[in-house]
Amino acid sequence: MMKNKLSSRDWARLSAYLDGELSSGERARLERRLRGDVDLRRALDDLRQTRAALRSLPVVRARRNFTLTPEMVAPWRPSRAAVLYPVVRLVALATSLLFVVLLFRDVTGVGQPMLAAAPAMEMASVTEKAVSPLGEEAAPDAAFEAAEAPQEKTLPSREEPLPAATQAPSLVPDVAPTAEVIVPVASPRAALPLTLISGLVALATIGAALFLRSRL
């Protein structure tokens, strides 16, 4: 059909013309075209018919009233689950992250020297003090005894002989490896329960978050 060749602007003009929404200039131009263009007139007639059909639709009477009751407009209060859910979700995320970090540290050992560095350094300085009189067969002095006490605390289960520096400072002049020997033993034992606890807490909070989400 020829009217299919009309541009979308033509259709928009015809549609607006029917609604009286054209400016006087646009309207005059369109009316001039309508006088000489049969297809345009036919398109206008079809559009008018469609518009009339649409306008014949009645206002639909609602089958019930939509009046409001005080309960309907009572201030909205979020449920307890809605309040708790974001908090629990945040805690679950934080504990999960903590668990992953601790597990990573336990497995790879990354970060452990940093944790044990303080006692190791302390130990090193103490042992240095204890062995300073090289070549002398001096009995352990007070400083050395003080150094042994924390070492026993940090290595309660160690069965291997302690390094030379901690056993007999006067016999072994080279005490440099002290830090390397002491450090790796102490931290995994301290971290393991923490990893376990954080894992359990993460599991519990994830479960709680899922439960709360199902209640939303």
Binding site: S8, W11, A12, L14, S15, A16, D19, E21, L47, T50, R51, L54
Partner: peptide, 8 residues
């Protein structure tokens, strides 16, 4: 205007 024309 354009949506209405296309809809019609």
């Amino acid at each position: 205007r354009s949506r209405l024309a296309r809809a019609r």
